[in-house]
Simulated scan of single mutants.
Amino acid sequence: MYVGIDVGGTNLKAGLVDETGHILAVERTPLDFRGPEAFAATLAELSKAVMAAGGAEPAQVEYVGVGLPGAVSGGDVVYTTNIPMENVPLESLFRRTLDLPLLLGNDADCAAVGEFFCGAGQGTEDFVVVTLGTGIGGGIILG
């Protein structure tokens, strides 16, 4: 099982999914940014909540994936466009509350990969996703 979290402009949305991409539970909470440490703890608590809603224990979850509007490098946030984070070691902060691997990605890229494997892009080789929310983004799958 996996937890996926979308960091939007106003809300954090989490889903618990199985190995086939089937959604087992969904939870959300308002985005209330009070600094990187509190943000990481909120992501961890939201992960725990969606696991509980889906009847999963942390030991059953392989990792937590987070899509952020901005740039990431490994477990670090390079910058975000909607919350004041720059050069933040988000994975290490997250693991203080929940000791699971945290995978970070650009939110629009994450949407494209999700649609490619589990949604409208299945069976295609080239695929574009445009995301509309608080901001506008896009992700491309080529070949």
Rank of each mutant, 00 (worst) to 15 (best):
E91R: 02
V64N: 05
E19F: 08
G54T: 02
L16S: 10
E62Y: 08
V77Q: 02
G15F: 11
N87S: 13
L43T: 05
V17H: 07
G67E: 05
E57S: 15
A56H: 06
T29E: 15
F39L: 01
M51A: 05
Y79M: 10
V61E: 04
G67M: 02
I23R: 09
K48L: 15
T42Q: 15
G74I: 03
E45T: 00
H22L: 13
R34T: 09
T29A: 15
G54I: 03
S92I: 01
D18V: 04
N11L: 11
Y79Q: 03
L43N: 08
F39N: 01
R95Q: 14
G74W: 07
A49N: 13
D76K: 09
F94T: 01
A49V: 00
I83V: 14
A52V: 05
E45V: 04
G65F: 07
G75D: 05
V88Y: 01
P36A: 15
E62P: 01
G21I: 06
V78D: 08
K48V: 02
V64H: 07
V26N: 14
P36K: 05
D32G: 06
D18S: 10
G21E: 11
P36N: 11
I23P: 10
V88M: 04
G21A: 12
Y79V: 01
V26R: 15
A40T: 00
I83S: 06
P84E: 11
K48Q: 10
R34E: 15
D18K: 04
E19Q: 13
G35P: 12
M51Y: 09
K13S: 11
A49T: 04
S73I: 04
H22S: 14
A71Q: 14
A40Q: 02
E62H: 09
G70M: 06
R34Y: 09
N82H: 14
E91S: 08
E62L: 13
G65V: 06
T81Y: 06
T81Q: 11
V50Q: 05
G70V: 02
V66N: 06
A56P: 06
L93V: 00
A52R: 14
H22D: 13
H22V: 07
S92W: 07
G15C: 13
V77S: 04
V17L: 14
M85S: 11
E86P: 01
V88E: 01
R28S: 15
Y63V: 02
V78H: 04
F33Q: 01
P84A: 12
L31I: 03
S73E: 15
P30I: 11
H22F: 13
R96C: 07
A41Q: 13
V26Q: 15
G75A: 12
G74D: 10
L90K: 00
E27H: 11
T10G: 05
R96Q: 15
V66W: 09
A40S: 04
A40D: 00
G65T: 04
F94W: 08
G67P: 06
T80R: 09
A25F: 09
V17Q: 10
Y79R: 03
L16T: 03
S47G: 14
E27M: 13
A52T: 12
A59D: 14
V26E: 15
V77Y: 07
R96A: 12
T10Y: 04
F33P: 08
K48G: 03
L90I: 00
V78P: 01
F33W: 03
L43G: 12
N87W: 02
